[in-house]
Amino acid sequence: MRAFLFVPALAATLISGCSEAQTNQSEGSSMASETTGQSEQDGKKGKKGKATDIANLTQVGKMDEVPESSGLALTGENGTFFTHGDDGNQPILYKIDTEGEVLARIEVAVKSQDWESVTRDNTGNVYIGDVGNNNNDRKNLVIYRLNPLNPQIVQEIKLKYPDQTEFAPKKKDRNFDCEATLWHDGQVYLFTKDRGRGETSKVYTVPDQPGSYTAQLRTKLAIPGQVTDAALSPDGRRLVLLAREEMFVFEGENLAAILKAKPTQISLKGAGQTEGAVFTSNQTLYISTEQGRFYTYQFE
């Protein structure tokens, strides 16, 4: 059974200037170290980086029973997370512990075209983003809202982008794929993966209520990478945009200020195809990879 509520499309569009990323190279930074710098130098010399060389990153487990982990969210119970498989896998939410061991499998009563992200609100609802759009040609983008205690009742948040007029656009203009969503203050934020130029992540929002919406374009972020997930710290002062073997860290007094800040780029070279991220505290970030590796990254 699915519940539907149709709401008029949003009209207002607010676009702010791009924030440029900077690589953190200072010796005393809490987000980088000499080890990370050495790993980057080795990469330039053609050597492969190792996860053990990345400062503040620790592998804590492996998800052997989760096929291609592609998102990560808290469950509301200490020491447990939700994750799910990537494109082509079954519509199942996996409940895992801090070592990546599967505690439960929750079958969701929907079809999965390209699940790419999962996020949770402050009342226990989970939002699964079936918004993967590799070819930028989908017209059926949807976010599924459900309570994991009753996964047979699923509500749909259907969406379209206000600035997409071609399906698919020219290759250089393909910036309508999305692998990163984030719930905050009654809105679901979507951060695009720039498959065209690989230089900009657009930030859209839709209400967290079921219905059909034209997403609101909030801002554009200058990100020299392809975003795979988003995580906001519990105090709301730090945003991480995960990308493949790297992440971009924004800081500010609140999310509005964060989205205007200049991000710090941190290399995760050697960690694998990093796909999921969620904070468990203001300092501790959990990261999952498509290969099943499970890490913590510790901010100081």
Rank of each mutant, 00 (worst) to 15 (best):
N56S: 08
L10P: 02
L239R: 02
C178E: 00
T123H: 06
D137E: 13
V188H: 09
A256E: 08
Q22N: 08
F176I: 06
T119D: 06
V154I: 14
R218I: 13
L149C: 00
N122H: 11
E166D: 13
S267G: 05
T280F: 09
L190S: 05
S212R: 10
I143A: 02
R105M: 05
T296Y: 10
V66P: 10
E253H: 15
L268A: 02
E275A: 11
K139W: 07
R145I: 09
L259E: 08
A168H: 03
L57P: 02
Q90F: 05
F6N: 05
V227K: 03
A231F: 13
A168D: 13
T80P: 00
G292L: 05
T75V: 13
R244A: 11
S201N: 08
T35K: 12
A277S: 12
F248P: 01
E300W: 12
Q25F: 06
Q298E: 15
F6D: 09
I287Y: 09
K160T: 15
M31I: 15
T264I: 13
K48S: 15
R2Q: 06
L190R: 01
D185Y: 02
A180M: 11
R138D: 01
P207K: 02
R138F: 02
E290F: 10
A9R: 12
V118T: 11
Q90V: 14
K158Y: 08
E251L: 10
L232P: 05
G37I: 11
G272E: 01
Q152I: 03
V110L: 00
N282E: 09
A51W: 04
T119C: 08
H84V: 02
G43I: 01
D229W: 01
Q59A: 12
R244N: 14
N175Q: 12
T205S: 06
G61N: 04
G225M: 00
A3K: 02
E199W: 02
E99G: 07
V66D: 10
G49V: 15
S267P: 01
N78L: 06
E290R: 06
R293C: 03
L217C: 06
K269Q: 11
G100L: 03
V206A: 04
V7R: 00
F248T: 03
G198R: 00
D208H: 13
Q38V: 09
K220F: 04
V60G: 00
P148Y: 05
E245M: 04
